[in-house]
Design a protein around this nucleic acid. Sequence first.
DNA 1: GGGGTATGAGAGAGCGCTCTCTCGACAGGT
DNA 2: ACCTGTCGAGAGAGCGCTCTCTCATACCCC
Lengths: 331, 331
Amino acid sequence: MRRPTLEAVAARAGVSRATASRVVNGQTTVAPHIRDAVLRAIDELGYVPNPAARSLVTQRTDSVALVVSEPGTRVFSEDPLFSTAIRSASMELEAVNKQVVLMLASSAKSHARVERYIAGGHVDGVMLISMHGADPLPAALSRLRVPVVSYGRPAVPVDIPFVDNDNVGGAEAGVRHLVESGRRRIATIAGPQDMIAGQDRLAGYRNVLRDSDRRSIVAVGDFTRESGAVAMRQLLGDDPGLDAVFVANDLMAVGALQSLRQAGRRVPDDVAVVGFDDIEAAKYTEPPLTTLRHPVSEQAAAMVKLLLGLFEGGAIDPVILPTELVVRESA
Amino acid sequence: MRRPTLEAVAARAGVSRATASRVVNGQTTVAPHIRDAVLRAIDELGYVPNPAARSLVTQRTDSVALVVSEPGTRVFSEDPLFSTAIRSASMELEAVNKQVVLMLASSAKSHARVERYIAGGHVDGVMLISMHGADPLPAALSRLRVPVVSYGRPAVPVDIPFVDNDNVGGAEAGVRHLVESGRRRIATIAGPQDMIAGQDRLAGYRNVLRDSDRRSIVAVGDFTRESGAVAMRQLLGDDPGLDAVFVANDLMAVGALQSLRQAGRRVPDDVAVVGFDDIEAAKYTEPPLTTLRHPVSEQAAAMVKLLLGLFEGGAIDPVILPTELVVRESA
DNA sequence: GGGGTATGAGAGAGCGCTCTCTCGACAGGT
DNA sequence: ACCTGTCGAGAGAGCGCTCTCTCATACCCC
């Protein structure tokens, strides 16, 4: 009780295997009545092409790997960025009939696994979501002569096209908003400095403060809610007089709001808070969070487009998407 | 500049292709010095087996599809259940060297795509996350004679082993907690009734109220935060005197807390709130949410184990995992 | 020393498909 | 009538691997 082969279809339709193949692959050099006969045979037998056989000869697999290189297990589950990006990329690829192979590369062992898999030619290309500077994967994959694109600028300069949002510009806009609303002592809770987003958002903060002649007050978190709460307590200890804080992501901002509440500070009256990312939860904090929105779905879609461009051959320039300040009540 | 083949490895090692294949596949019937020679050749050439060729003959692909059949786009991104389940399943499968092909089946069109893909033999098995009763996919896939397991009990009775948590028992425990703490007018915000989790949790609520001689007060949401807020307002309108509410998931509970705050009700003094799922955010609500924890990761892991069991042949019984009441401050 | 049994290695037949090459048939131009 | 050109269809070679079957060698027992 095997699956029918192209041979069987051809036999039933009374044509050669080559002709049946032509019909399956939509070539036009087949006379209408023969094409119909083949299609009928396909239908009657319930024929579905064997992908292994096909890609053995075509050297294509019509699937791409989505590699999420993220050691932090909690982050993956909690930060909606990942699921949104995965979802969007996935949908874009489905639209062009490519499959998504999801690979989570959390440990050194799984890095090796990913490399082996990619090297094995299981996929036509790779989309890499890697945010940590020390990650060896971008460099390793770019060596493999497989089309690779990155979600977010790779930390080490490596020859991979990427799509990123304007972290520096976004942070500048957020801090400028605080400056313009008359805040004097503007602190920041920065992200991890081994991550590009962490670095760039801190740079944006520094740029604006430098120009506006204010002192920078920095605490560093790791993009988790808890670290935001801790960092906020720390900032309040260091400088009880601060009247604003720019938090490098919303998850930490949620933690910061909690610490501010516990410390008896009113938001935004005593302390203004600006986040980054505009995650869903930002709408529901108390008070709702002013933050910077960047289009995660669009970024993922652009990444897919970039990869498809690579398939067609042709080096492709990085894409930087703009961010947008969303003013709610926290600042 | 082609990739080296097994033939090349064999030639370099001075053995036959068959022997090289034996070494690659770890068969023991190869003399040590020959094995070494082959391994050296593999290393020197950077040989990696061609998976298409391999699976053409073995009829295996060593990859499984993870099909998320979820029309609600927002839910996928926001509900951490999906990312947690995906992550956990993915890690379990990596441990046994299987690849995960992620497929999002949101529309009827993508249903057809999924079916075609599975029928094509791209994967050795399917893990199905489908929560809507009207979903035709479970039945369709089970017809395909491919090993399929389901995350959550399929709504239509179909012959697929599944892993689920004890929704009825969990809801009963939650409502019983409210009864035991002396609440008299216990309402519920139920989930969508075309979803098993929605049905079962409502059933649990009803079971306990029936036994404790209280009237049931029901509003229905769709598991989103917003719907929880709306339902809560509605309940307060219907019965201003209610003193407790059992909410069928945490996301809706967060919305409900917001509505309660806006209506000037104190939680838990005026109204006690119990959620379901114990998502990360439940710890950070004001006040922290009492809720029912079910082990999403374990459930996903159990699903993987179930699927691997199917590969070995042998019909396998459903697995029901227990839930646990986590008492925080909201009830 | 002959016959039998392990043991290790090679030969070769496919797995199901694509795609180039070839060829037949027929139309149109001279 | 013949030659050229076009179009549609078949033949068959391979893609890179696994695995059965076969065979050569070495070993043991009587």
